[in-house]
């Protein structure tokens, strides 16, 4: 192995201990859901926002709150409702009668971790305000622009059922989330543990085991993880297969795909794969990393046609087919 990569791997093995600490601490409260926790950490370490989707009661909110509690950083939870206004989120200017001036009142978005609970329950203008803050990492109030604190991470949840009275996120805005994680029901033995743990009076609590500075340090380290040109080619093959499936031995997907993954997909595949390699204590990315995070990066970036909907072909099926057809380097 190259000396730089070997040295980086050694450093990562030391620093990844923080990630293990966070996972262990969160595991006291969150039973099972290791996959979801890992994805949240990937978002945390690669500066990418995460959207969690699942039916009610799968500990989406609990997991995010617990993860935020394991890091000593500011945490804000915003319950998205139909009557929420952009000012309730980003803040506003308040007139001060005493001195006749306007003072700035910053909104809850000024925090390290922002939990946007049930993001699809608020109207488009509120979603836009949040998603703009996510993209720009700054908020403008009046004539002044305020940078958001670092690390800044938005973890949003949405419910796939009860579509009545919701405002589905437009494709362009879903694209800003690095990962869209589908949360599934726990296994039987996990549910038994959940039942026992949460039916007790003294419920477990977590304490902060990492600091915001440590997170920033890990982020900087993750960015240096080596990605070989072969891996980059593999990522490009995957993304282009979603755009021109007929050129990648997948002509049957052509009528099912309305639009393929955007260039953001390529960027996020590499970023998330680096974070995944970090969690596996490696200083370099292997195809396994791409495969591991590929579904969560691509599933919300591929649009399906009416034909696909009629045939009940989901984006997950399409992504699986692409991964099954593109040769691993």
């Amino acid at each position: 192995m190259d000396a730089d990569i070997r040295e980086l791997t050694l450093r990562i093995e030391r620093e990844a201990e923080i990630a293990d600490r966070i996972l262990t601490e969160a595991g006291k409260v969150v039973v099972g859901q290791k996959y979801m926790l890992e994805r949240l950490l990937i978002g945390l370490f690669s500066n990418g926002h995460v959207l969690l989707e699942g039916v009610p009661g799968l500990a989406k909110t609990l997991t995010i709150k617990t993860l935020a509690a394991t890091v000593s950083a500011q945490f804000q939870r915003i319950q998205f409702t139909p009557d929420l206004l952009p000012a309730d989120l980003v803040g506003t200017l308040v007139y001060n009668q005493k001195d006749g001036n306007f003072t700035t009142k910053k909104g809850p978005v000024f925090a390290n971790f922002v939990l946007a609970d049930e993001i699809n329950r608020a109207p488009a203008k509120v979603q836009s305000a949040l998603l703009e803050a996510m993209q720009e990492q700054q908020v403008t109030l009046g004539e002044k622009t305020y940078p958001l604190p670092q690390p800044f991470l938005v973890l949003a949840t949405q419910n796939p059922i009860e579509q009545e009275g919701t405002y589905p996120l437009p494709e362009a805005q879903v694209d800003r989330f690095m990962l869209k994680v589908k949360v599934d029901y726990p296994r039987r033995e996990e549910e038994a543990r959940i039942m026992r743990t949460f039916s007790r009076v003294d419920q477990p609590k977590v304490s902060a085991v990492a600091t915001a500075d440590e997170l920033l340090r890990i982020r900087a380290m993750v960015e240096t993880i080596y990605v070989d040109p072969k891996i980059e080619e593999y990522v490009l093959d995957l993304v282009f297969a979603s755009r021109q499936p007929e050129q990648h031995k997948l002509p049957e997907l052509k009528p099912l795909i309305q639009y393929g993954a955007s260039p953001r997909a390529s960027i996020f595949l590499i970023k998330a794969a680096r974070a995944h390699a970090f969690l596996r204590h490696r200083g370099y990315v292997v195809p396994e990393d791409i495969r591991a995070i590929g579904m969560d990066v691509l599933r919300h970036r591929i649009g399906i046609t009416y034909e696909a909907e009629a045939e009940e072909v989901s984006t997950e099926t399409i992504v699986e087919k692409i991964f099954g057809a593109v040769e691993v380097p």
Partner: peptide, 10 residues
């Protein structure tokens, strides 16, 4: 082989 291909192992 993965190390050679992706981690500059010689």
């Amino acid at each position: 082989s993965d190390l050679v291909k992706f981690a500059k192992e010689i």
